[in-house]
């Protein structure tokens, strides 16, 4: 899907957060910087600021999720918004209501922000194209297309542990083909000017012409991990696979599972990341997932601050918010 500028309003302010593709480098850095001050807030006694007091946030998750939905909920609550969680597969969609009708009804209840996850690529775009001017949309994962807030929290985690991107060699490992996380990560890393971005996977799990995204593909994991600073593992998405893309789970683990032996090809101070949920013993060995190089749990903590920053930046200071208040 092409970036069409729908994320920005007529004043050039970020209004929705749908994809990282096409976002200016400065916008990404602004989000990371803002998140940094929300981290400090998360460490104090009262973890709440009044920024979004009186605003209503609806978590609209057409696909299940625990981590993402929960961190969005905590993020919105720490900004003092009211949060409603809706799992449409259990409600009106199950009775035949269309996506846009569901959204229109919730909008009629004066929702200010929708956080949307959907199995179809472009679902968040579709909604963003139909809501009124004062309503904001955050894409929390659409099909195989994008998961921009996950990529942002990954960038935040990398910057905190490893410093400037210009010096970093990053390897993304696993099911790149089905991964919206990988796509968003690649756009973020190339925009931020990472020294090198590699993708490591069997040919069947690499998108065609993946080089065009500015990455170096590897099918040999040990060669791909040589001297990298960051290893970003991906979940093997068996639920999205339609054919036999991997030989067997045991063989996949032998070739592409991250073990301590394979990790040793990377730099000694490499950080190991995973967006969760992890398939232990399939794409990652427990010894690595729980080992000293792992930043998998800090990723989750950082997700709250990064999502707070994104909500605060898109919902603050839009002229439309003022217009709505005027009589």
């Amino acid at each position: 899907m092409k970036q069409d500028g729908r994320q920005f309003d007529s004043h050039g302010r970020l209004r929705h957060f749908l994809t990282i593709e096409g976002l200016p480098r400065q916008t990404i850095l602004d989000i990371l910087d803002t998140a940094e001050s929300f981290i400090a807030m998360g460490e104090r006694e009262i973890k709440k600021v009044p920024l979004l007091r009186g605003k209503t946030v609806v978590n609209l998750f057409f696909e299940s999720s625990t981590r993402t939905r929960t961190t969005f909920e905590i993020a919105a609550k720490r900004l003092s918004a009211d949060v409603i969680n809706i799992n449409p597969s259990l409600s009106s969609t199950a009775k035949g209501e269309t996506l846009l009708d569901t959204v229109r009804n919730l909008e009629a209840m004066h929702t200010d922000l929708f956080v949307v996850r959907h199995a179809s690529s472009g679902a968040a775009y579709l909604i963003a194209g139909h809501v009124s001017e004062h309503v904001h949309i955050i894409n929390a994962g659409d099909g195989r297309h994008a998961h921009p807030t996950q990529a942002m929290l990954d960038m935040f985690t990398i910057r905190r542990h490893k410093g400037p991107f210009e010096n970093l060699r990053v390897a993304i490992v696993g099911d790149v083909l089905h991964s919206r996380v990988a796509r968003s990560e690649i756009h973020a890393l190339t925009t931020l000017g990472a020294a090198e971005v590699r993708v490591i996977a069997p040919k069947t799990l690499l998108p065609t012409a993946v080089e065009k995204l500015g990455v170096h593909p590897f099918t040999d994991m040990r060669a791909g991990l040589a001297d990298v600073d960051v290893i970003m593992m991906l979940r093997l998405q068996r639920e999205r696979m339609t054919g036999a893309l991997i030989p067997s789970e045991q063989e996949y683990f032998n070739l592409y599972g991250l073990t301590a032996e394979k990790r040793a090809y990377a730099k000694p101070d490499v950080i190991v990341m995973h967006p969760g949920p992890m398939n232990r013993g399939l794409e990652i060995d427990s010894a690595v997932a729980d080992g000293p190089n792992s930043v998998i749990l800090p990723q989750v903590t950082n997700g709250i601050a990064v999502r707070m920053a994104i909500m605060a930046l898109i919902m603050g200071g839009t002229p439309a918010a003022e217009a709505r208040r005027a009589p």
Binding site: R13, L29, I31, D33, L51, G317
Partner: peptide, 15 residues
Amino acid sequence: FTRLGINPQVKTSNL
């Protein structure tokens, strides 16, 4: 906040 938004160069409070 709703009029001006937040300045991304927010400093961290430190007590």
